[in-house]
């Protein structure tokens, strides 16, 4: 707690405008990431993790918008910056990798050019210099024969190679924060491990903090030092990643951990069913009153159905949003 955090999100609310007015797609989202730290945001599809990431990099587009709260990056409030100042941060100091390497790259532009753009945009290089740097950037992400590959188009590369190109683009300017939104979901399992390893190493070399977003608790806990679990637009628990596996405080977190298959459990316990969390995630417009997890929670009592729990610190460190936390 000595140096100020790299990014600090406080009480962020993201509104979704529809015909009937505005609903909060995410609210009360608060977290902080220190320089060089790895932080994970986990949750099911539609829990608000991706839009939180888009808010951080300033890419929310209609019908989504920031309704309340503040995002402070390096001490400066992002909402107070002009469009040009925001653009100067974007890509340069906050970069993002997206889920689909198939569609996230421009199909009619050579990958080298798409990397080189970063040096033209943020480092004031001319194109020939930028193209040379693009070859280096491609070598950095361990793409073989980079001087030939820069001329390739995205469709000539495999999914893993494309994601490497995305990483090369994102890390081109050695940003302070890399947001990785499901970076390996679309890839084969073997390629996944390579990409994660690469991303971690390159970020560690550059001192780049990672905000990793995924539905895969195991993956995130493996990469990140701290993990926040999101459910229905709210962060329900934030812990060190080892703690979250060992002793999740929120019933939802425990449900997630219990639903993971475990190697060797059959030998120890015999043939058992994988545990599941009953019910489904509510739609944004139908978020229940009180604690949003209450219809699916085994511990729910009357207070859970009427009063939303506040985020509370745990004795063992970490935060939880539950009336009955363990």
């Amino acid at each position: 707690m000595t140096s100020p955090p790299l990014i600090e999100v406080e009480n962020l609310r993201i509104d979704l405008a529809d015909r009937s007015g505005r609903v909060a797609a995410a609210e009360g989202v608060s977290f902080r990431i220190d320089r060089g730290e790895t932080f994970g945001l986990v949750g099911e599809s539609g829990c608000g993790k991706s839009i939180t990431a888009l808010a951080l990099i300033g890419l929310l587009r209609h019908p989504l918008s920031i309704g309340a709260g503040t995002i402070r990056f390096d001490g400066r409030e992002l909402q107070n910056l002009s469009a040009a100042e925001q653009r100067a941060l974007r890509g340069n100091r906050i970069a993002m990798i997206f889920q689909e390497p198939m569609t996230a790259l421009n199909p009619v532009s050579p990958v080298g050019r798409q990397i080189a753009e970063m040096f033209v945009l943020h480092k004031g290089k001319d194109w020939s210099e930028a193209n040379r740097l693009a070859v280096e950037a491609l070598a950095d992400v361990r793409v073989p024969a980079p001087e030939r590959r820069v001329k390739d188009y995205p469709h000539q590369l495999s999914g893993g190679m494309r994601q490497r190109v995305m990483i090369a683009i994102a890390l081109a300017c050695s940003p302070d924060l890399l947001i990785a939104d499901e970076p390996t979901t679309a890839l084969d399992v073997t390629v996944q491990a390579e990409i994660i390893e690469l991303m971690r190493n390159l970020c560690a070399e550059r001192g780049t903090a990672i905000l990793m977003i995924s539905h895969d608790l195991g993956l995130v806990a493996n990469v990140c030092r701290r993990v926040a679990v999101m459910y229905a637009g709210r962060i329900v628990e934030e812990r060190g990643s080892a703690d979250i596996f060992r002793a999740g405080a929120h019933p939802y977190t425990r449900g997630l951990v219990d639903s993971l298959p475990r190697l060797g459990s059959r030998a120890a316990l015999g043939r058992t069913r994988l545990t599941e969390i009953a019910g489904v995630v509510p739609a944004i417009a139908d978020f229940p009153d009180g604690c949003r997890f209450n219809p699916r929670c085994r511990l729910a009592t009357d207070i859970c159905r009427t009063t939303a729990p506040e985020i509370t610190p745990l004795d063992a460190g970490g935060l939880v949003r539950c009336h009955h936390h363990a």
């Binding site: 100067a88 993002m96 997206f98 689909e100 569609t103 945009l121």
Partner: peptide, 14 residues
């Protein structure tokens, strides 16, 4: 609305 346009914006382009 394509993904690569979002990528382009995330690079900090006007």
């Amino acid at each position: 609305t394509a993904d690569f346009v979002r990528t382009a914006r995330s690079k900090g382009m006007s």
